[in-house]
Design a protein around this nucleic acid. Structure first.
Length: 790
RNA sequence: GGGCCCAUGGUCUAGCGGUUAUGACGUCUGCUUGACGUGCAGAAGGUCGGGAGUUCAAAUCUCCCUGGACCCACCA
């Protein structure tokens, strides 16, 4: 069959290979790229389907198998929608802002960001990103990702950053942004404030030290894990029901070494059973301190600088020391002076920076905040309209909405979208430019030489900070739908149809996208949300770069093919469930494709046949498998339309492997070869074999694009399988009857096989066995199949 | 402490009121059957975590318990 254009370069004798393998796949992949499935026509008459896909973050190699499986599923879903007859906007982007690449670059070049000129550091980051990105794009192409690679978007491009800034400016102008000076999560290692969502907790061993405070003529013992903050202690709290300390309530204690007077206050957050039952409240050891300072109206004294070292207010003994060092030294001093009662080991749940894995400090900083708290109720109601395909994950979002606070959006970093704000050098009044351009206040003057609207001077200094990277990615749905750029396009594509993402970024990407897009457009950014589970290693533990248990998918794909990998990804876990990696499962997927390949080889060996119309007469066995096929098509189509790749893929595997190949094909093999059958009977068998294969290959095309395409082009059409539409099949009246006939055939087959096994006969040897009455219509086929004595 | 999810043969997994409890991998036995030995056929292997209840009927619904995972708060 002619296969010009799409199918150049594929060997004519491809079916001489008896196994599905990566080599065959590579040949077809090259020609498949010419199809450019990713292109999108906004004027299409078809229903438009827009996918808001996660732009992957190039933060280091290798790209984990879990992530690649995730993108495989995303691609399958895009292909499914195309084959359900929709015009699909399937963008591919790269998330290239923020801390991870800065960390990667610092490590790679052995430099420190703050000791490198900003321009130079940015350039180094860009190089790292370009290298990592190239690899990732290669991987995406290898797995057959069918997005629009001619228009890859990058969140660090001037266009994208201009959108991040424009949307910020819109929100600023709406009064949604404010600057707050408040205790912030500060990561010393990263040198920046981070959001609550970027914190993870880890049990770390630490010393709980018991320090003696003087109170009147008495002493009271305070247990603390942060003795270095003794100089910041502003109050002691005890539980109101703790009889040991009730006499002290309201009295003034004196901090050792520092000699400050601090009041003893009753507060329920002091647990009598922990430590000594007396807690020192200092600025700031933990969140409880923050809360108590606010509640008790205490004045903070900050002892830790942004360099992670103790400042001069900490006193000369520990000034200049790192927090850890200061802690040890302080314990030594207290011991020496007899102020230490005792100390013990405890496990302490420590807040750590998600990115640098070092403990954070709570330090007051002035940062930009985006208001979100006032929208909580509204958002809570709103997300009821969001269709969570994976219902089990909705709760994570609602829980988070309950406890989340306003979002600190500024970061003291270099490689990120700049905050487009300048300040008047004279009076400090902020100047925010018009939205639309990409601004870099740290190196540029404000555009058009504006004058300060307060003091009319025209000398400005730019803010040197950047945005939290989620400020960029939270508008991905707006960027891909050309928000602020092309009204018609955006009108047709926004809100988008589907957001697909991982369960690990619900608090961040999902939440922030809703917050931002809703504030900007008044609409939720998507109709459906599919939250995918995470990839687990063989032991059921989450794969993570930090754990070093990530598996590189490429050797696996080289060995077993991308289609096998994709089939595995689709068939491994039900929607939203975590999936466990096992090479055996990928091998099994590859075996299935080999099975399909061999079915195709067999069918192909009878020559191409015209599929236009049914032959004059179909045998009952033919009618059975056709009915069965239609049911499979409808079931899978239904699963597909609900984004359930798991059910669809497993159903197909089961049908091909356990019904079609062993029962139907074996049943009609003799008829297909024509031995002892009429021409019409033979034609019916060939027609049916092709009918089933064609249906299955088409149905499988979104999951296994390469093997499907080859079989399709070889046997059925000049036109790609990927431009076909999977239609609903109409079941006919007799179909039920034929399906029960099929069940009887399969039952009978088993009986014969068992009988031959018992009699130690080979499967092809003749046997004398009675064919049940109900199988009269297929007697001829059965006799041929099992070599039953006449 | 609050919430959420999970528990099915050796492993993973489907089923979610009536099934001989699904499939894959693994194990064992046999077989060159006109495509596939990375195959075919057969077999072994499960008291569906434990207990109670609802029901004519429960792996499936309810409650309790146990054991895991995750999220949130708190831990001086």
């Amino acid at each position: 069959m002619a296969v010009d254009g799409i199918f150049d370069g594929l060997p004519a004798d491809i079916f001489s290979q008896n196994r599905w393998n990566r080599g065959i796949e590579e040949a077809i992949q090259k020609s498949s790229e010419n199809l450019r499935l990713g292109k999108f026509d906004v004027n299409s008459k078809k229903e438009i389907f827009t996918i808001d896909t996660p732009p992957p973050y190039p933060s280091g190699r290798p790209w984990h198998l879990g992530a690649v499986a995730h993108y495989s599923k995303i691609d399958i879903m895009a292909r499914v929608e195309r084959m359900l007859g929709k015009e699909v906007l399937f963008p591919v982007g790269m998330d290239r802002n923020g801390l991870p690449v800065e960390k990667y670059t610092e490590k790679k070049h052995g430099v420190s960001m703050r000791d490198t000129p900003r321009e130079e550091f940015i350039e180094l980051c860009r190089q790292s990103l370009d290298e990592l990105e190239t690899e990732m794009i290669d991987i995406l192409k290898t797995i057959g990702y069918s997005a629009d690679f001619d228009n890859i978007y990058r969140t660090d491009s001037p266009e994208y950053r201009a959108l991040t800034q424009a949307t910020f400016i819109e929100q600023w102008n709406k009064g949604r942004v404010y600057k707050g000076h408040r205790p912030s999560n500060y990561c010393v290692d990263c040198g920046t404030t981070i959001a609550d969502a970027e914190i993870e907790y880890k049990e770390l061993k630490t010393r709980l030290v018991y320090i003696k405070f003087k109170i009147g003529g008495d002493t009271i013992t305070v247990a603390t894990t942060r003795p270095e903050l003794l100089g910041a202690c502003k109050a002691l709290i005890v539980n109101p029901d703790d009889d040991r300390y009730t006499p002290f309530i309201g009295k003034e204690a004196v901090t050792p070494l520092y000699g400050a007077s601090v009041k003893v206050v009753a507060h329920p957050s002091a647990k009598p059973e922990f430590g000594s039952g007396v807690v020192m409240v200092c600025s700031y050891g933990d969140y409880n301190d923050v809360m108590l300072f606010r509640e008790l109206g205490l004045e903070e004294t900050i002892l830790i600088g942004t360099d992670g070292k103790m400042n001069k207010d900490a006193g000369k003994d520990i000034e200049g020391l790192l927090v850890e060092e200061a802690r040890k030294k302080m314990v030594g001093i207290l011991k020496e002076k007899g102020l230490l009662e005792k100390s013990e080991n405890v496990a302490h749940r420590t807040p750590m920076c998600d990115r640098s894995k070092t403990p954070i400090e709570i330090i007051p900083m002035e940062e930009y905040y985006l208001k979100t708290i006032d929208l909580k109720d509204e958002l809570n109601k709103l997300i009821d309209d969001l269709n969570f395909v994976t219902k089990q994950h909705k709760q994570i979002l609602t829980d988070w909405l309950k406890v989340s606070t306003d979002w600190p959006i500024s970061r003291r970093r270099y490689y990120g979208t700049e905050i487009p704000v300048w300040y008047c050098k004279e009076c400090g009044e902020p100047y925010v430019p018009v939205p639309g351009e990409y601004y870099r206040p740290w190196k540029e003057n404000p555009p058009g030489n504006p004058v300060c609207k307060k003091c009319s001077k025209s000398s400005f200094v730019g803010d040197v900070r950047t945005f939290d990277t989620w400020m960029d990615s939270s508008v991905s749905a707006l960027f891909v739908t050309k928000y602020r750029k092309d009204e018609k396009f955006s009108g047709r594509t926004y809100p988008t149809s589907l957001r697909i993402q991982g369960v690990d970024i619900i608090r961040t990407w999902l939440n922030y996208s809703i917050v931002r897009c809703y504030q900007l457009t008044g609409k939720l950014p998507w109709r459906d949300v599919y939250v995918d589970g995470v990839g687990l290693d063989e032991h059921g533990e989450k794969m993570a770069k930090s754990k070093g248990n990530g598996v590189d998918p490429m050797p696996l794909i080289d060995e077993y093919s991308a289609d096998a990998f994709r089939f595995w990804a689709a068939s491994e876990a039900s929607p939203g469930s975590n999936f466990l990696y096992s090479e055996m499962k990928v091998i099994a997927a590859n075996k299935f494709l080999t099975k399909l390949w061999n079915v195709a080889r067999l069918v192909n060996s009878f020559g191409n046949i015209e599929m236009g119309s049914e032959p004059k007469k179909l045998e009952d066995s033919d009618r059975w498998i056709i009915a069965e096929t239609k049911k499979v098509v409808n079931d899978c189509r239904d699963s597909y339309s609900r984004y359930n790749l798991f059910t669809a893929s497993n159903k197909m595997r089961e049908f091909v492997w356990n019904v079609f190949a062993p029962h139907y094909i074996e049943l009609v093999k003799g008829r297909a070869y024509g031995d002892g059958f009429s021409a019409d009977e033979k034609t019916a068998a060939l027609y049916t074999l092709n009918y089933v294969l064609k249906s299955i290959v088409k149905l499988l095309a979104p999951i296994t694009p390469s093997v499907s395409e080859i079989i399709w082009l070889k046997n059925y059409s000049d036109e790609s399988v990927h431009s076909q539409v999977i239609e609903q099949e109409k079941l006919e009246e007799g179909d039920e009857k034929y399906m029960s006939l099929g069940a009887a055939i399969m039952e009978f087959d088993k009986n014969v096989w068992n009988a031959k096994k018992e009699k130690k006969l080979s499967l092809k040897s003749e046997i004398d066995i009675e064919i049940p009455k109900g199988l009269g219509e297929v007697e001829k086929d059965l006799r041929s199949m099992h070599n039953i004595k006449a």
